[in-house]
């Protein structure tokens, strides 16, 4: 072959091997691109685009100060915004809502959980926001890109021992172009006991976590209901050594709620224990949901729901889908799953 032939085949071989790499790179680039986002102009479904914030700022979104940023998906990034203490909601752990009119559609959540705890906000049952509460238990976060309509929001947190709070759920009607501020969220305390069965007359330790310095009311439910108040320490922890000599032999339950500066939570999770003749230590707090985690990923979410829904009204359902072990997968199993839902 001549030199020209060598050059000819070299070029073809180069194209042959370089071609696949080149096309692969293009594929990745196309997949990562959000149509309309990144062109500097705010499109119909964009809140911002690059440096173009459309006149919005941290203060217009309900924050006190800070720098509003724009994400690569053209939604507001409020992580650099700061907020001061917001007005409290009404009693009973309720949330107060105010709606200043501004162009973006956001929901700003502020409230109290446990010191340095992870707080998760579910939007219509799906995890939409995770944030960390400060040492004072206060947290805030923003969900953007909502439509006009009814939304079901739920908030929960996990204390320093991994115990999960009950879901704090509330419906909100969202109006497009309006930032809705939900303040006064007050998550109920976590609770646990040191024994699952206790000899009558011995003390049972009832403990958990709430907001530092809050007043925790602990209810021990017997024929006569006992209420004991404790002040949470600087870490939010509370402890009650309850004398069981006043309780009847049999099944009992305990739950707690918190109050601080005129705000109060609903009662949180219920823990059951037996007053009998022996002492049995309680299990350590589970890091996984007690029920509903069908696929064992430590979450109760749409995947688990889909598996259980597959077995709805079908015969020979596996034990993992039959949450109440009554031999059938019916509405009760889904209700149990909804209670333990993590999103």
């Amino acid at each position: 072959m001549t030199r020209a032939h060598h050059q000819f085949f070299s070029i073809f071989l180069l194209l042959l091997f370089a071609g696949p790499a080149f096309t692969h790179a293009i594929t990745v680039e196309i997949t990562a691109t959000v149509p309309g986002c990144g062109d500097g102009a705010i499109g119909n479904e964009e809140q911002c685009d690059g440096l173009n914030l459309g006149g919005s700022s941290c203060s217009s979104l309900g924050f006190t100060d800070g720098s509003l940023l724009c994400t690569s998906a053209c939604t507001f990034n409020t992580s650099s915004c700061t907020s001061g203490s917001s007005g409290s909601g009404g009693g009973g752990g309720g949330a107060s809502v105010s709606s200043p009119s501004i162009p973006a559609t956001n929901v700003v959540f502020t409230g109290r959980a446990y010191p340095l705890s992870r707080v998760t906000v579910l939007k219509d049952g799906q995890a939409a926001l995770t944030t960390i509460a400060g040492p004072d238990s206060n947290f805030s976060g923003t969900i953007s890109g909502l439509s006009t309509g009814n939304y079901q929001f739920s908030v929960y947190s996990e204390d320093s021992a991994g115990r999960r709070s009950s879901l704090f759920a509330f419906p909100i009607y969202i109006t497009s172009g309006v930032t809705t501020k939900i303040s006064g969220i007050f998550i109920a305390p976590t609770i646990a006991t040191d024994k699952s069965e206790i000899r009558k007359g011995d003390n049972i330790a009832i403990f958990g976590q709430s907001v530092p310095s809050s007043e925790v009311t602990i209810s021990v439910n017997s024929e006569e209901e006992f209420f004991v108040k404790k002040i949470a320490d600087s870490d939010g922890a509370y402890l009650l050594n309850f004398d069981t000599s006043v309780l009847e032999i049999g099944q009992h339950q305990t739950q707690s709620k918190s109050a601080l500066n005129g705000e109060i939570t609903a009662f949180g999770e219920t823990v059951e224990f037996v007053v009998g003749t022996v002492n049995v230590l309680a299990d350590l707090p589970a890091t996984t949901p007690s029920k509903g985690d069908v696929n064992g990923d430590q979450r109760v979410n749409l995947v688990d729901f889909s598996v259980v829904a597959y077995w709805h009204k079908r015969e020979n359902a596996p034990a993992s889908a039959d949450l109440n072990a009554d031999g059938e997968v019916d509405l009760v199993d889904f209700s149990i799953m909804a209670f333990y839902w993590t999103g």
Partner: peptide
């Protein structure tokens, strides 16, 4: 939030539904 059986016409003259809302309404 999640339909087990979304509301639909199961047979003439009958619509069935079942669903859940985590946290409750």
């Amino acid at each position: 939030n999640f339909w087990i059986e979304n509301p639909h016409l199961e047979s003439p003259g009958k619509i069935i539904f079942s669903g859940i809302t985590p946290g409750g309404v």
